[in-house]
Amino acid sequence: MTAAVAVGVLVATAVHLLLQRGQLRVILGFVLLGHAVNVLLLSAGGLRRRTPAFDGVGEEVVDPLPQAFALTAIVISFGITLYLLGLLRADGPAGDDGEPAGEDESADDRSAGEPAGDGDGR
């Protein structure tokens, strides 16, 4: 049950962060969500077995496959977290308020009006 409880609290916290304002909170939310999935993956292998997989089959030896999955997942989410940080930084020092102002209704005008910064590579 440890894994279930851990997944539960991690997911709850993550969702709480994701649904709030601020980009940093969203990033941290995704980090926690990643943790939750890793715990879930290990639990999927069966947490009854807890001996590291180094020497052959045994009653207590873990299922190694979910660990490989978890490793892959950790690395991928690490990469994407870095990218999210890159997006955060590209915003400039505007602050953690996240969403730049006036994005709702004027989105059209900007995307269509093509401000100077919105060149498409030329």
Partner: peptide
Amino acid sequence: LGAGAARLGAARVYVAVNLLAST
């Protein structure tokens, strides 16, 4: 790619939703 505040804002939403879906 190609800058612009609108595009960055869209990129953030895009990454967030897809990351959630991937998770």
